[in-house]
Amino acid sequence: MSDPHRAMADTIRGVPVSKLCPKYLHSNSTSHTSPFSAIAELIDNAYDPDVKAKQFWIDKTVVNGQECLSFMDNGNGLTFETMYKMLSFGYSDKVAGRGHVPIGTYGNGFKSGSMRLGKDAIVFSKSKSTSCVGMLSQTYLESIKADQIITPIVCFEQMDKLNIHLLT
C-alpha cells in the first residue's frame, strides 16, 4: 500500500520537492518595518549594475477604487528568464560592474518589498527584443485556493517589426 502523502508531493527523480505556501508572501513582507524600507528596496533594484537605470519614477493612482503605487525606471528591462528568477525566491545573478557592487544578492528584495506595500504586484518590462508581464498576487492565489506560490508570466518576443510571437 502506498503512502498517500507521497502521492501528493511534487518530485524530481523521486525526491520530494518542498513547496512555498502563499501565506509566506505576507510573512516575508514583515521583514520591512516600514513602507519606506520597502520602497527603498524597489529603488535599489533599479540602481543595480545590470539594470543601469538613469531615472526612476514613483506615482500613485486609483484603479477600480483601489489606490495603487507605480514604480518605473528606464533600465535595461527583463527577459523571460530574468523575470522568472526575480519572481522566484532565492535567485540572484547580480554581479559587480565597473566597481559598482549590487545591493541585493539574496533574491528576496522585490518579493518582500512589493508585498509590504500591497497584496499584488504586476510587473511590466521591456528589454531590447522582449516584452514581459509577470504577476505576484496574494489576491489571485487566495481566489484559486493555491497551495503553493504561482507566478504567471507572459512574454512576447519581437522577431522583426511585423511579427510578434508568444514565448512558451
Rank of each mutant, 00 (worst) to 15 (best):
H165W: 07
M115W: 01
V123E: 05
C132Q: 04
K111Y: 02
L69T: 06
A146T: 01
H165F: 11
G97I: 05
S114H: 06
M159P: 04
Y140T: 05
V154L: 08
C155Q: 03
T105G: 15
L117M: 10
I149F: 00
D73P: 09
H165N: 13
D48F: 00
L166A: 09
V133R: 07
S127F: 02
V154E: 09
G77I: 02
A7C: 02
S114C: 05
D160H: 05
V63G: 03
F71V: 05
A46E: 07
H32D: 09
K85D: 14
S92W: 03
F56W: 02
P152S: 11
S27K: 04
V101C: 01
K161W: 07
V62R: 13
T105E: 11
P22F: 05
I103H: 12
A121F: 04
F156Y: 12
D10M: 10
K54H: 10
C132W: 01
H165Y: 05
L20Q: 02
D3M: 02
S137C: 00
F80W: 08
L167C: 14
Q55I: 07
E67Q: 10
G75P: 04
P152W: 08
N64W: 11
L136H: 01
D50Q: 11
D48A: 14
A38R: 02
F71W: 02
V63C: 03
F156S: 07
E41D: 15
T105L: 05
G77K: 01
T30S: 10
D48N: 10
D44N: 15
N74E: 00
T30I: 05
S31D: 00
E67C: 00
Y91K: 12
Y84L: 15
G118M: 01
L162M: 06
A121W: 03
Q148S: 06
Q55N: 15
V95I: 11
Q148Y: 12
W57H: 11
A46D: 14
N108Y: 14
F36D: 11
C132K: 01
L136I: 06
G65E: 01
L42W: 01
F71M: 12
W57V: 13
N108P: 07
L117K: 07
Y106C: 14
F36G: 12
C132E: 00
Q138V: 06
S143G: 01
N163M: 10
M135T: 00
W57E: 08
M72A: 13
Q66R: 13
A121Y: 06
P152L: 02
Q158K: 14
V123H: 06
D50G: 10
C68R: 14
H32R: 03
H165M: 14
F89G: 11
K145Y: 11
L162T: 13
K145N: 15
A121R: 02
S2R: 07
Q66E: 13
